[in-house]
Nucleic acid binder design. Structure first.
Lengths: 225, 225
DNA sequence: GCCCTTGCTGAAGATCAGCTGAAGAGCTGA
DNA sequence: TCAGCTCTTCAGCTGATCTTCAGCAAGGGC
């Protein structure tokens, strides 16, 4: 699970980074509102931990701009306890949850997990691309009405591509998201699985939904190939 | 799921409407007690989110009148944190749950879902999947007209799978829901019971309703196998 | 057309997830 | 207390699945 922490207080930010990393989250940290907005726009995070009092652009603004740009990432706001900042306003601007400082780390982790679960369940369960149907809930894939049996890895890969249908997705990102692998993982692993996927959902049907974007990764055709 | 929000604070009401709608609820909003009572009486809601401090008729009154009229709709009360309003009294008047302001949106959604589940489970439930019938109320299972005797655990397991027929359900979730077990419980326990279940409802009938979804858990075929 | 880079794919060994029979503990009702 | 039923744990087994490697094919710049 990928988390972006936007917090200007360095010590707290560092503590969060360490703590959340050891909880199994993949954590990025930035220290001001503008950077937060930029990073959140460029990268696919599951959840953003957003301090309200930030230099540059405050948390409310970051939140409402993100929402205005159509993002449905999970947002957990950190509010100071002095009451200057209003929880109701946090929720108004589109935050999913908030936590008052000082907060318990255990509670933060629990909330993040709850949030991630909810966001996950909000994601579309079924993606239809022409005659190719990817059903995340049932974990099935059908092509032209035929159910195609896929291995776990193949399905995860297809599912990831389907969620970003029409977009080119890099092997690096695929390794990060579908595999939980570190930076030293082998892109060839992805190639092998892409190959297997094609042999199952494309070749037998004379289609080409899984497209190679040379130098950039792979793309699942929005019309199913 | 249909929700009625009775809340006079416009901003909060609007935020709730947006937030709950994006969570998949069907949301209606009214801003005072009398309208709330009227709407709740006229329409079939699953849950009512009821502020206590309301113009016209306060939340307690709305709640007790609804109960007096025989309604068993789920009621979640919103209490201000200033202590002027009493949670105990809320429950006394027939509310199912309450939440103190300011509250976390995530918590609200979780409570609403819990409430809806509770309300929903009050009604007798029967799931028909082809010739496989799972009757939660009677705690019986029949296959092709034959009653299949199941142990309590087996039935709970089947019941849980039946409620999410067609979806892949993870062993982790099964352990959480069917067993009340902690995080260190053994997935093999589930496997053993799945095996027993198959031997009773599938094998003797030459069917395969209980499907293994490798790496993801199990799925009960929506057509009974 | 040539060369370098990037991507494809078949094979093989290692690993892993899931299945199942058996044993023993726990519970319940006679 | 005892018998019978149920639940959990364990360990071995099987087949599916993953990764790595190596050689080949294709694309693109020159």
């Amino acid at each position: 699970m990928r988390v972006l922490v936007v917090e200007d207080e360095r010590r707290l930010a560092l503590a969060l980074q360490h703590g959340l990393t050891s909880e199994g989250f993949t954590v990025d940290v930035v220290h001001d509102g503008l950077s937060g907005l930029a990073r959140a726009t460029d990268h696919a995070y599951d959840v953003i931990v957003l301090d309200i009092m930030l230099p540059g652009l405050n948390g409310y603004r970051v939140c409402s701009r993100l929402r205005a740009s159509g993002s449905d990432v999970g947002i957990l706001m950190l509010t100071a306890k002095d009451g200057e900042w209003d929880e109701a306003e946090a929720l108004d601007t589109g935050a999913d949850d908030y936590l008052s400082k000082p907060f318990s780390f255990v509670v933060l982790v629990a909330r993040l997990n709850a949030l991630a679960r909810r966001i996950g369940s909000r994601a579309p369960r079924r993606t239809v691309l022409g005659d190719l149907v990817v059903d995340s809930a049932a974990r099935t894939c059908t092509r032209a009405g035929t159910t195609v049996p896929l291995t776990p890895r193949e399905f995860a890969l297809l599912d990831h591509l389907a969620r970003r249908a029409g977009e080119a997705v890099s092997k690096r990102e695929i390794l990060d998201q579908v595999w939980d692998s570190g930076p030293d993982s082998d892109p060839n692993t992805v190639e092998v699985h892409i190959s297997a996927l094609r042999r199952k959902i494309d070749t037998p049907f004379g289609r080409a939904a899984v497209q190679t974007v040379r130098g950039a990764g792979y793309r699942l055709a929005a019309d199913g190939g």
